[in-house]
Design a protein around this nucleic acid. Structure first.
Lengths: 298, 298
DNA sequence: AAAACGGCAAAACAATTGTTTCAAAATGTT
DNA sequence: AACATTTTGAAACAATTGTTTTGCCGTTTT
């Protein structure tokens, strides 16, 4: 019972007292518990980028004698997981109806969000997304506009894009008026405008100005007839359906990330090198805390 | 594609044509599919009471070349990740045409994003999300911290939350130092910290300071042992897996939106009235363009 | 009755597994 | 600076892995 009651909690509580390499292994295990259940110890060590002996040492450090026990624990956990549905049923019975309602609401939100993303990456939009990338690649300067709830998506794009290209302007109206940031915009540039109903006046004004200067517009919005989409070169219509009073910009954020990923993929080696340089700079500025390894997923 | 479409059906349909010993093995596999995923081939053979060679022969008989493939299939089934198979297949498939590659990359991104959101709304996290809401409701002041790529999620929360409550501070370090914005933080407040590897020093510092003032922390991050999660009251671990060099904060954004939606739902009529007031104010400020109808989705 | 055949398990195999050992490297202490 | 301690990764190991080969057994065919 209580012996290995919860191996994960043991791992977390002891984490601070472990040596750096063991922490690395422990962290990988905490983040990828299924790997313990399904893969071999050496494979796990490889994935966690530590020598096999570190894994062994980690096990003895947290009081597990053999990998066999360790693996068994995680296998049982994995087998019990599908049963968690039954657990939830039991839990929600005992507790008040409020919790039950909250659970259902969250489920419903999840479904809606997934649906939104699904549509954003639908067949029709994929082609236009690729077109948008081509336009961005050839642009002299990229202006990104998004206010209010759309601001996160705009920021996201600018932030990621800036890591490998420096010809982006995030038009947030913060530093000076809009006019300042849009100065010099012309037909060789491109503007990415993000927004949904209710349309914020500032964004519409920015788009109108861009069009008046013959700058093509990529509109990420909720309708073909949105003010910012009316004369756009490329329209990327994303669903912003939501369970709450507030429209969801999840799909827009996701789409914007995808555009950046696509640009990097098309940029090839050169783009990757630029990113490496940018990351080095950030590290040099002491932006990050420890952990020199780059963002790498298994 | 359809090659290994469903290995179990293949096993059933071919069952009659198999030799007696192979039937014995096939029958055991059909009855204990998890053994394939979790145990070794020899162990399976032992459990099924057949020699190891029979299992090998069975595999070739049903058109599977190697135990590795067989096991992978059952492991994916156990993880309920039918996508991963298609994933690998398609990725390793053709790198032929650029447009083709772009299309596939987008598809792959979509799957990953959906998977991330799915996990973020999984059974374990739903309960904790509700707990987080309760903590936020009872807090005197809500501080939201998120820098770099996590900033959109932090902004999103602050923006939406402010529409119906005014006790939120978005700690962006823009207006003055962190110290200014965190002044007076104490045990009756709550801090929502958002971040993923690589962890940005500012965010960690803010969390450390909050903890030193005994302010409970809700951590939205990528690991149980992330620096900002280490002593958090509530940990909301979201997957940030991504196809690109850049981790995806889509799930974090989505989760944050869900928290706001939940807070509104729990807030009842009063919250809705406050939102209406806020929207009227915005309209009065001439923020929106035409279209006076409030943000309401069907 | 002899030959041919398919089904079968034991043995053999190279590769990989989990674990231990050991010396170098890194770290902290005097 | 010199020592003691801890941390680390490469090598070594026996055991076990997935797979192939081998030869035996029982049935069928000629």
């Amino acid at each position: 019972m209580g012996l290995h009651a919860d191996l994960r909690e043991k791992l977390i509580s002891d984490y601070g007292k472990l040596s750096p390499q063991m922490q690395k292994a422990a962290r990988y295990i905490l983040d990828h518990p299924n790997d313990v259940a399904l893969r071999s110890m050496r494979a796990l060590a490889r994935a966690a980028d530590v020598p096999p002996s570190t894994v062994t040492r980690l096990m003895t450090a947290i009081g597990v004698d053999t990998w066999q026990q360790f693996r068994d624990h995680y296998q049982n956990r994995l087998l019990d997981l599908p049963a968690s549905y039954a657990n939830r049923a039991r839990e929600t019975q005992n507790v008040s109806q409020d919790v039950d309602r909250d659970q259902h609401l969250l489920e419903s939100i999840a479904r809606t969000e997934i649906d939104n993303i699904d549509k954003a990456f639908g067949a029709e939009l994929r082609g236009r997304t690729i077109d948008a990338c081509a336009a961005i690649e050839n642009a002299r300067q990229v202006f990104v506009v998004g206010r209010g709830a759309a601001y996160p998506a705009a920021y996201q794009f600018a932030y990621a894009y800036r890591l490998f290209r420096d010809n982006v302007v995030l038009v947030d109206g913060r530093s000076g008026a809009f006019g300042d940031q849009l100065r010099g915009i012309n037909r060789r540039d491109v503007m990415i405008a993000i927004g949904a109903r209710p349309y914020i006046r500032d964004t519409v004004r920015a788009v109108d100005y861009a069009r008046s200067q013959h700058c093509p517009v990529i509109a990420i919005c909720d309708s073909d007839v949105a003010p910012i989409a009316l004369d756009a070169m490329i329209k990327l219509i994303v669903s912003d359906k939501s369970q709450s009073f507030f429209q969801s910009f999840t799909a827009a954020v996701s789409l914007v990330q995808a555009i950046v990923a696509l640009l990097v993929a098309r940029g090839g080696q050169k783009a990757l090198e630029r990113i490496a340089t940018a990351e080095e700079q950030l590290a040099a500025f002491d932006t990050y805390v420890e952990d020199p390894s780059p963002t790498r997923n298994s």
